[in-house]
Design a protein around this nucleic acid. Sequence first.
RNA 1: GCUGAGGUGGCAGAGUGGUUAAAUGCAUCAGACUGUAGAUCUGAUGUCUGAAAUGACUUCGGAGGUUCGAAUCCUCCCCUCAGCA
Length: 412
Amino acid sequence: MNSRFCFTKTYKDARSCARTGVIHTPHGDIETPAFVPVGTQGSVKSLSPEELIDLGTDLFFVNTYHIYLRPGLETIEKLGGLHRFMHWDRPLITDSGGFQVFSLARPKYSSKNDGEEEKGSLVKISDEGVEFQSHWDGSKHVFTPENSMQFQWRLGSDIHIAFDDCTPSGVSQKQAKASMDRTHRWALRSVSEHKKLAISHELSANRSYQALYGSIQGSTYEDLRKESSVFISSFDFDGIAIGGVSVGEGKDEMEKVLAWIAPLLPDEKPRHLLGVGEIDDVFTLVGYGIDSFDCVQPTRLARMGFAYTKDCYQLKADSLKLKAHDDFVIDISKKAYEHASGPLDPRCFCYTCQNFSRAYVHHLFKVRELFAYRLLSLHNIAFMNTLLKDIRQSIREDSFLECKNDWLYNRF
RNA sequence: GCUGAGGUGGCAGAGUGGUUAAAUGCAUCAGACUGUAGAUCUGAUGUCUGAAAUGACUUCGGAGGUUCGAAUCCUCCCCUCAGCA
């Protein structure tokens, strides 16, 4: 097995930019396009590593910022690195902390499009880096491109992401440019630090090479997105991450952004899109040649009582209603499912759907049994992974567009 | 039968003369959620009109009564629970 990171393209859809491939890492291969579940604090909430493997998950996404705060990097190192700590000896990708520049910058649950300076913000951004206030205890911590790289090396993840400034939506072009320029400066510092660390680690610890993805920003401005794409692509990154997407802008805008970016990316490098993954989004991403994407949506929705289904009808207040073409969830908490004998999704082969009725999951959810969260999370991840498997197959058969059309418009 | 406690909106449960159409929780309905400060958050929830209520109407076991005004005070009745016979 190749112990180093590399990416192999395998098929390219004839009528779109969709492609299949394999990302090789020191901890195994990732079949792409791939959905990457998010395990922020070292666990995909409620699921075990074995379950994730059974569900077909190749890559696991962990957040550096959260692990850094708790349990802390020293603990991870003492216990043999993040892979061993988590009992996940497969590919691992870590976020840089960049997203917290965005998410901690605003008070909890505030609307997405408020102005920049708000009370309750837990971050202070400067050119040097970002000062975070821990959401646990208020203590202050500084993240810089350099220490983010060091942290990710210490965690030992297979794919690192360069520290970036995740631009919120709705900002002016001037603000977006400032944020993008900062991301670019940070990208250079990230690369440089990453190389230093690679050299020192390979010489001193014979450690396998860790990959680094550079992050594109530029908000919803065409010239900025293009500039960022060209800039990030021109450096020696192992892959490209697309950030600042789905931060409040609409789906149409996100698609426009992808349309600007996609043609400018080096074909031979894997592209990861950060933080997107509603069912209909998946087709947009894959259609623009995105190879992997992480998203909390399947697991978070599961905990809120939503189950993915291709079924286009939903019981609402005692009546069966046609869902919107991009709506793929049912709310299992509704009383309407009290006696529903069928599985969450009639075509799903997951453990939940093979063994339990909607009524049972509804019941467990209403009485807040922990098993409910597991059953729903299991199902939603299975649903995503099956979807991606179908998509990969369709690409190999040059029928990605038919697959997309079937999912988005020909449901029944 | 005696003694004591009590009967409040779908349920539990505050309130003991006016700011009470009635706290709070649950339930129900609706909305939000996309590199997880989230097993979370927001709103609605007597009826009717209305885009909206400082609008109208009907509510706190039942029937009367006192009062400018009652879920709250008085009388009678019905019912529930606990203890004792």
